[in-house]
Protein backbone atom coordinates (compact mmCIF):
# COMPACT_ATOMS: atom_id res chain seq x y z
CA UNK A 1 0.00 0.00 0.00
CA UNK A 2 1.20 3.49 -0.78
CA UNK A 3 2.37 5.48 2.19
CA UNK A 4 0.79 8.70 0.92
CA UNK A 5 -2.88 9.46 1.50
CA UNK A 6 -3.58 9.94 -2.22
CA UNK A 7 -1.58 8.59 -5.14
CA UNK A 8 -2.21 10.91 -8.10
CA UNK A 9 -0.72 8.44 -10.61
CA UNK A 10 -3.12 5.68 -9.57
CA UNK A 11 -6.12 8.02 -9.54
CA UNK A 12 -5.13 9.33 -12.97
CA UNK A 13 -4.78 5.80 -14.32
CA UNK A 14 -8.26 4.84 -13.06
CA UNK A 15 -9.62 8.15 -14.39
CA UNK A 16 -8.07 7.59 -17.81
CA UNK A 17 -9.36 4.05 -17.90
CA UNK A 18 -12.87 5.18 -16.89
CA UNK A 19 -12.84 7.84 -19.58
CA UNK A 20 -11.75 5.30 -22.22
CA UNK A 21 -14.49 2.90 -21.10
CA UNK A 22 -17.17 5.58 -21.47
CA UNK A 23 -15.83 6.73 -24.82
CA UNK A 24 -15.91 3.14 -26.10
CA UNK A 25 -19.63 3.18 -25.46
CA UNK A 26 -19.89 5.82 -28.19
CA UNK A 27 -21.30 8.48 -25.86
CA UNK A 28 -19.86 11.18 -28.08
CA UNK A 29 -22.58 10.47 -30.62
CA UNK A 30 -24.66 12.90 -28.61
CA UNK A 31 -22.37 15.61 -29.96
CA UNK A 32 -23.75 14.90 -33.41
CA UNK A 33 -27.24 15.57 -32.11
CA UNK A 34 -25.99 18.74 -30.44
CA UNK A 35 -24.38 19.80 -33.72
CA UNK A 36 -27.62 19.18 -35.56
CA UNK A 37 -29.56 21.21 -32.99
CA UNK A 38 -27.17 24.17 -33.16
CA UNK A 39 -26.58 24.23 -36.90
CA UNK A 40 -30.14 23.20 -37.81
CA UNK A 41 -31.55 25.73 -35.40
CA UNK A 42 -29.34 28.42 -36.88
CA UNK A 43 -30.40 27.62 -40.45
CA UNK A 44 -34.06 27.54 -39.43
CA UNK A 45 -33.77 30.89 -37.66
CA UNK A 46 -32.47 32.64 -40.76
CA UNK A 47 -35.95 34.08 -41.38
CA UNK A 48 -35.86 36.03 -38.11
CA UNK A 49 -34.17 39.36 -37.52
CA UNK A 50 -30.51 39.02 -36.54
CA UNK A 51 -31.25 39.97 -32.92
CA UNK A 52 -33.93 37.30 -32.66
CA UNK A 53 -31.71 34.77 -34.40
CA UNK A 54 -28.77 35.36 -32.03
CA UNK A 55 -31.04 35.37 -29.00
CA UNK A 56 -32.63 32.04 -29.91
CA UNK A 57 -29.37 30.48 -31.00
CA UNK A 58 -27.94 31.27 -27.55
CA UNK A 59 -31.11 30.17 -25.72
CA UNK A 60 -31.35 26.84 -27.53
CA UNK A 61 -27.61 26.06 -27.58
CA UNK A 62 -27.03 26.71 -23.89
CA UNK A 63 -30.26 24.88 -23.08
CA UNK A 64 -29.11 21.87 -25.14
CA UNK A 65 -25.70 21.99 -23.46
CA UNK A 66 -27.38 21.95 -20.08
CA UNK A 67 -29.57 18.96 -21.04
CA UNK A 68 -26.70 16.95 -22.54
CA UNK A 69 -24.27 17.65 -19.70
CA UNK A 70 -26.83 16.75 -17.04
CA UNK A 71 -27.87 13.58 -18.87
CA UNK A 72 -24.28 12.60 -19.52
CA UNK A 73 -23.28 13.22 -15.90
CA UNK A 74 -26.10 11.06 -14.53
CA UNK A 75 -26.10 8.28 -17.13
CA UNK A 76 -22.33 7.86 -17.42
CA UNK A 77 -21.74 7.86 -13.66
CA UNK A 78 -24.69 5.64 -12.75
CA UNK A 79 -23.38 2.79 -14.89
CA UNK A 80 -19.78 2.87 -13.62
CA UNK A 81 -19.98 0.83 -10.41
CA UNK A 82 -22.63 -1.68 -11.57
CA UNK A 83 -20.64 -2.38 -14.74
CA UNK A 84 -17.38 -2.83 -12.83
CA UNK A 85 -19.19 -5.23 -10.50
CA UNK A 86 -20.74 -7.10 -13.39
CA UNK A 87 -17.43 -7.35 -15.28
CA UNK A 88 -15.63 -8.11 -12.00
CA UNK A 89 -12.98 -5.51 -12.87
CA UNK A 90 -13.64 -3.88 -9.50
CA UNK A 91 -12.21 -6.97 -7.77
CA UNK A 92 -9.09 -6.84 -9.92
CA UNK A 93 -8.55 -3.19 -9.06
CA UNK A 94 -9.36 -3.39 -5.37
CA UNK A 95 -7.26 -6.55 -4.86
CA UNK A 96 -4.25 -4.36 -5.69
CA UNK A 97 -3.11 -1.80 -3.12
CA UNK A 98 -5.73 0.71 -4.23
CA UNK A 99 -7.85 2.25 -1.48
CA UNK A 100 -11.54 2.47 -2.24
CA UNK A 101 -11.56 6.26 -1.97
CA UNK A 102 -8.92 6.41 -4.70
CA UNK A 103 -10.96 4.07 -6.86
CA UNK A 104 -14.01 6.34 -6.47
CA UNK A 105 -11.95 9.47 -7.07
CA UNK A 106 -10.52 7.93 -10.24
CA UNK A 107 -14.03 7.06 -11.44
CA UNK A 108 -15.20 10.62 -10.73
CA UNK A 109 -12.15 12.01 -12.49
CA UNK A 110 -12.95 9.97 -15.61
CA UNK A 111 -16.43 11.47 -15.77
CA UNK A 112 -15.08 14.97 -15.06
CA UNK A 113 -12.69 14.59 -18.03
CA UNK A 114 -15.60 13.46 -20.19
CA UNK A 115 -17.80 16.37 -19.09
CA UNK A 116 -15.01 18.91 -19.54
CA UNK A 117 -14.21 17.66 -23.02
CA UNK A 118 -17.89 17.62 -23.95
CA UNK A 119 -18.33 21.19 -22.68
CA UNK A 120 -15.31 22.33 -24.67
CA UNK A 121 -16.49 20.67 -27.89
CA UNK A 122 -20.10 21.84 -27.54
CA UNK A 123 -18.97 25.34 -26.51
CA UNK A 124 -16.59 25.58 -29.47
CA UNK A 125 -19.27 24.39 -31.89
CA UNK A 126 -21.82 26.83 -30.50
CA UNK A 127 -19.39 29.78 -30.59
CA UNK A 128 -18.29 28.85 -34.11
CA UNK A 129 -21.89 28.87 -35.38
CA UNK A 130 -22.53 32.14 -33.54
CA UNK A 131 -19.39 33.62 -35.10
CA UNK A 132 -20.37 32.56 -38.63
CA UNK A 133 -23.89 33.90 -38.24
CA UNK A 134 -22.47 37.15 -36.88
CA UNK A 135 -20.06 37.45 -39.83
CA UNK A 136 -22.89 36.78 -42.25
CA UNK A 137 -25.07 39.48 -40.59
CA UNK A 138 -22.13 41.92 -40.64
CA UNK A 139 -21.44 41.27 -44.32
CA UNK A 140 -25.09 41.70 -45.22
CA UNK A 141 -25.33 44.95 -43.26
CA UNK A 142 -22.15 46.28 -44.90
CA UNK A 143 -23.69 45.64 -48.29
CA UNK A 144 -27.10 47.17 -47.59
CA UNK A 145 -26.65 49.86 -44.93
CA UNK A 146 -26.10 53.55 -45.87
CA UNK A 147 -22.50 54.57 -45.00
CA UNK A 148 -23.49 57.17 -42.36
CA UNK A 149 -25.46 54.57 -40.37
CA UNK A 150 -23.04 51.70 -40.86
CA UNK A 151 -20.91 52.04 -37.72
CA UNK A 152 -23.82 51.97 -35.19
CA UNK A 153 -25.49 49.13 -37.14
CA UNK A 154 -22.35 47.00 -37.03
CA UNK A 155 -21.89 47.78 -33.33
CA UNK A 156 -25.49 46.70 -32.72
CA UNK A 157 -24.88 43.35 -34.45
CA UNK A 158 -21.67 42.70 -32.51
CA UNK A 159 -23.43 43.58 -29.25
CA UNK A 160 -26.30 41.18 -30.00
CA UNK A 161 -24.01 38.27 -30.94
CA UNK A 162 -21.10 37.41 -28.67
CA UNK A 163 -20.77 38.34 -25.02
CA UNK A 164 -17.89 37.34 -22.73
CA UNK A 165 -20.49 36.30 -20.17
CA UNK A 166 -21.26 33.26 -22.32
CA UNK A 167 -17.99 31.68 -21.17
CA UNK A 168 -18.78 31.69 -17.42
CA UNK A 169 -22.31 30.56 -18.34
CA UNK A 170 -20.83 27.43 -19.94
CA UNK A 171 -18.39 26.96 -17.05
CA UNK A 172 -21.31 26.94 -14.59
CA UNK A 173 -23.09 24.31 -16.68
CA UNK A 174 -19.96 22.18 -16.34
CA UNK A 175 -19.83 22.74 -12.57
CA UNK A 176 -23.46 21.63 -12.34
CA UNK A 177 -22.63 18.54 -14.40
CA UNK A 178 -19.73 17.63 -12.08
CA UNK A 179 -21.97 18.12 -9.04
CA UNK A 180 -24.58 15.79 -10.56
CA UNK A 181 -21.88 13.26 -11.34
CA UNK A 182 -20.67 13.29 -7.73
CA UNK A 183 -24.25 12.97 -6.48
CA UNK A 184 -24.86 10.02 -8.82
CA UNK A 185 -21.63 8.40 -7.64
CA UNK A 186 -22.89 8.70 -4.07
CA UNK A 187 -26.20 7.10 -5.04
CA UNK A 188 -24.48 4.29 -6.91
CA UNK A 189 -22.45 3.33 -3.81
CA UNK A 190 -25.63 1.98 -2.22
CA UNK A 191 -27.70 1.36 -5.37
CA UNK A 192 -28.54 -2.19 -6.28
CA UNK A 193 -28.50 -1.49 -10.03
CA UNK A 194 -27.65 1.18 -12.58
CA UNK A 195 -31.33 1.84 -13.29
CA UNK A 196 -31.95 2.49 -9.59
CA UNK A 197 -29.06 4.97 -9.49
CA UNK A 198 -30.38 6.75 -12.60
CA UNK A 199 -33.90 7.00 -11.21
CA UNK A 200 -32.79 8.28 -7.82
CA UNK A 201 -30.36 10.79 -9.36
CA UNK A 202 -32.92 12.03 -11.88
CA UNK A 203 -35.41 12.50 -9.04
CA UNK A 204 -32.75 14.35 -7.05
CA UNK A 205 -32.19 16.54 -10.12
CA UNK A 206 -35.83 17.63 -10.20
CA UNK A 207 -36.14 17.97 -6.44
CA UNK A 208 -32.86 19.92 -6.39
CA UNK A 209 -34.47 22.53 -8.62
CA UNK A 210 -37.27 22.89 -6.07
CA UNK A 211 -34.91 23.01 -3.10
CA UNK A 212 -34.93 26.81 -3.02
CA UNK A 213 -38.75 26.86 -2.82
CA UNK A 214 -38.74 24.30 0.00
CA UNK A 215 -35.96 26.19 1.79
CA UNK A 216 -37.78 29.53 1.63
CA UNK A 217 -41.04 27.92 2.75
CA UNK A 218 -39.34 26.13 5.63
CA UNK A 219 -37.33 29.12 6.78
CA UNK A 220 -40.28 31.53 6.62
CA UNK A 221 -42.06 29.16 9.03
CA UNK A 222 -45.28 31.15 8.81
CA UNK A 223 -48.55 29.25 9.17
CA UNK A 224 -47.31 25.86 8.02
CA UNK A 225 -48.17 22.54 9.60
CA UNK A 226 -45.51 20.61 11.47
CA UNK A 227 -45.49 17.79 8.90
CA UNK A 228 -45.03 20.30 6.04
CA UNK A 229 -42.23 21.85 8.04
CA UNK A 230 -40.52 18.47 8.40
CA UNK A 231 -40.96 17.69 4.72
CA UNK A 232 -39.60 21.06 3.53
CA UNK A 233 -36.69 20.79 5.98
CA UNK A 234 -35.92 17.33 4.59
CA UNK A 235 -35.78 18.72 1.03
CA UNK A 236 -33.86 21.87 2.02
CA UNK A 237 -31.19 19.98 3.97
CA UNK A 238 -30.70 16.85 1.88
CA UNK A 239 -30.87 18.14 -1.69
CA UNK A 240 -28.54 20.53 -3.50
CA UNK A 241 -29.81 23.95 -4.57
CA UNK A 242 -29.60 23.36 -8.31
CA UNK A 243 -31.35 26.64 -9.14
CA UNK A 244 -28.15 28.36 -7.98
CA UNK A 245 -26.49 26.97 -11.12
CA UNK A 246 -29.18 28.14 -13.55
CA UNK A 247 -27.56 31.44 -14.41
CA UNK A 248 -27.39 30.92 -18.17
CA UNK A 249 -31.10 31.75 -18.66
CA UNK A 250 -30.43 35.27 -17.46
CA UNK A 251 -27.00 35.57 -19.07
CA UNK A 252 -28.48 34.95 -22.54
CA UNK A 253 -31.09 37.58 -21.71
CA UNK A 254 -28.24 40.08 -21.49
CA UNK A 255 -27.79 40.20 -17.71
CA UNK A 256 -24.17 40.76 -16.85
CA UNK A 257 -22.66 38.19 -14.48
CA UNK A 258 -20.63 39.68 -11.61
CA UNK A 259 -17.39 37.75 -11.13
CA UNK A 260 -18.03 37.49 -7.38
CA UNK A 261 -21.28 35.68 -8.03
CA UNK A 262 -19.61 33.42 -10.58
CA UNK A 263 -16.82 32.34 -8.22
CA UNK A 264 -19.20 31.86 -5.31
CA UNK A 265 -21.37 29.60 -7.50
CA UNK A 266 -18.30 27.62 -8.56
CA UNK A 267 -17.25 27.33 -4.90
CA UNK A 268 -20.74 26.14 -3.92
CA UNK A 269 -20.52 23.49 -6.64
CA UNK A 270 -17.08 22.43 -5.37
CA UNK A 271 -18.38 22.10 -1.79
CA UNK A 272 -21.35 19.98 -2.88
CA UNK A 273 -19.11 17.80 -5.06
CA UNK A 274 -16.56 17.28 -2.27
CA UNK A 275 -19.16 16.43 0.36
CA UNK A 276 -21.00 13.99 -1.91
CA UNK A 277 -17.69 12.35 -2.77
CA UNK A 278 -16.74 12.12 0.93
CA UNK A 279 -20.09 10.54 1.83
CA UNK A 280 -19.77 8.17 -1.14
CA UNK A 281 -16.36 7.06 0.20
CA UNK A 282 -17.83 6.60 3.67
CA UNK A 283 -20.61 4.36 2.34
CA UNK A 284 -18.42 2.50 -0.12
CA UNK A 285 -15.65 1.80 2.38
CA UNK A 286 -17.57 -0.97 4.15
CA UNK A 287 -19.78 -2.11 1.34
CA UNK A 288 -19.69 -5.85 0.80
CA UNK A 289 -18.82 -6.49 -2.81
Amino acid sequence: MSSTLLAPARILAIGRNTFTEIVRQKVFYFLLIFGLIVIGNSAFLAKFSFQEEFQMLKDVSLGAMSVFLSLLAILATAMLLPRDLEDRTIFTILSKPVPRYEYLLGKLLGVVILLTLSTLIMGALFLMVLFFREQSALAETQRTCPPQELAPALAEIRKAAFSWDLLPAMAILLVKGILLSSLTLLVSTFATSGIFAILVSASAYFIGHLQVTAREYWMSGIGIHWWTRIFTAFVALLFPDLQAFNLSDDIVAGTSLPMGLFWQTVALGAVYTSVYYAVACFLFENREL
Binding site: A236, L261, Q264, L268, V271
Partner: peptide, 29 residues
Protein backbone atom coordinates in the same frame (compact mmCIF):
# COMPACT_ATOMS: atom_id res chain seq x y z
CA UNK B 1 -24.48 9.33 5.77
CA UNK B 2 -27.90 11.04 5.72
CA UNK B 3 -26.92 12.93 8.86
CA UNK B 4 -23.65 14.06 7.26
CA UNK B 5 -25.51 15.42 4.22
CA UNK B 6 -28.10 17.09 6.45
CA UNK B 7 -25.35 18.77 8.51
CA UNK B 8 -23.74 20.01 5.31
CA UNK B 9 -27.16 21.24 4.16
CA UNK B 10 -27.65 23.09 7.45
CA UNK B 11 -24.18 24.65 7.26
CA UNK B 12 -24.78 25.74 3.68
CA UNK B 13 -28.19 27.34 4.35
CA UNK B 14 -26.91 30.85 5.20
CA UNK B 15 -24.52 30.78 2.21
CA UNK B 16 -27.28 29.63 -0.15
CA UNK B 17 -29.57 32.40 1.11
CA UNK B 18 -26.83 35.04 0.69
CA UNK B 19 -25.97 33.76 -2.76
CA UNK B 20 -29.62 33.92 -3.78
CA UNK B 21 -29.93 37.49 -2.51
CA UNK B 22 -26.78 38.49 -4.40
CA UNK B 23 -28.01 36.77 -7.55
CA UNK B 24 -31.36 38.53 -7.32
CA UNK B 25 -29.65 41.88 -6.77
CA UNK B 26 -27.75 41.25 -10.03
CA UNK B 27 -31.08 40.40 -11.80
CA UNK B 28 -30.53 36.63 -11.68
CA UNK B 29 -33.02 34.08 -10.36
Amino acid sequence: AILMIAVMGALLLPWQATLQREAQAAHFR
